[in-house]
Simulated scan of single mutants.
Amino acid sequence: MEPTGRALVTGATSGIGAAFARRLAHEGYDLILVARDAERLASVAGVLRADTGRSVEVLASDVGTPEGCDAVAARLGDVDLLVNNAGFSLGRTFLESSVAAEEELLRVNVHAVMRLTLAALPGMVHRGHGGIVNVSSVAGFASMQPGSTYPATKAWVTNFSESIAGAVAHLGVRVTALCPGYTRTEFHARAGIDMSRTPDWMWLDADAVVREGLRDLRRGRPVSVPGLRYKVVVWGVRHLPRRLIRRISRDVRGRIGRPSPGDRA
């Protein structure tokens, strides 16, 4: 994969998405940044242009809507690296949820990843190079959040990414599911999940997550789990008895509050 080119990052104004934007701009990529908040996008883009001298285009769009997803898909024809980072969790259990909230979760966490990956791949395959990072989660390796449908969406992202990676690797295109654990971002606060009881050792740094994810993409690894502690966690959820995993998950999940409807990154 070429060291520079054009990269598109969704959910680019905060957290892991913003860390991807910073890293890629410093590596020499020109950027297309996507998020819902136009004012915040403009601010992030201005800082990156000043710091790196790279071209930074902004696209204020909501990938949770058909129109927003189409607008982003239309910009992917000449993109060398796609980062599907936009995503969110619901700060309520399934029994407290609604059809509208669950469908929005699927549109952002699942449908947008599929739609944008499919839009980016033909150009990458035609050029014989390119990369796609689909931001998933350690939560997707097991039902680690009782009552939450978020892990199910991330299980789909990981499985989908592995499948597509195997289909396009011989064509010069690399696809990686980036599966971080708890990372210090706005993610949990936006979802109304109280993480105050989570021990410090469980938290990852967003810049470190991005660094390891890009390294694994370039090594051709279809799944990237940043941090030794979470590699151990993933080994555990894949091999320990399911009954034990369910018991542990009740202790490590943050407590759910009640955010306003539709509050997401």
Rank of each mutant, 00 (worst) to 15 (best):
L59A: 14
L59T: 15
A60Y: 03
D62R: 12
V63M: 06
G64A: 12
P66F: 13
E67D: 15
E67L: 06
G68C: 03
C69F: 06
C69D: 14
A71M: 07
V72F: 09
R75C: 05
R75W: 00
D78F: 09
D78G: 12
D78R: 14
V79K: 03
D80E: 01
L81W: 09
L82N: 13
N85P: 00
G87M: 05
G87E: 05
L90P: 01
G91Q: 10
R92W: 07
R92I: 01
T93M: 02
F94P: 04
F94Y: 05
F94K: 03
E96P: 04
S97P: 06
S97H: 08
S97R: 02
A101H: 06
A101V: 08
E103C: 04
E103Q: 06
L105P: 03
L106G: 03
V108K: 14
A112F: 12
A112H: 14
A112N: 12
A112W: 10
V113I: 02
T117A: 09
L118R: 14
A119G: 04
P122C: 11
M124K: 12
M124G: 09
H126Q: 15
R127F: 02
R127M: 08
G128I: 00
G128M: 02
H129L: 06
G131W: 01
I132V: 10
I132D: 00
N134K: 04
V135Y: 00
S136M: 03
S137V: 07
V138L: 07
F141D: 00
S143D: 12
M144I: 13
P146R: 06
P146E: 00
S148A: 15
S148W: 04
S148H: 10
T149C: 11
T149S: 11
T149G: 03
Y150H: 13
A152V: 14
T153G: 10
T153W: 10
W156L: 15
F160V: 09
S161G: 06
S161P: 03
S163M: 13
I164C: 02
I164F: 02
A165E: 01
G166M: 08
G166F: 01
L171Q: 10
V173A: 15
R174P: 00
A177G: 08
A177D: 04
L178H: 09
L178G: 08
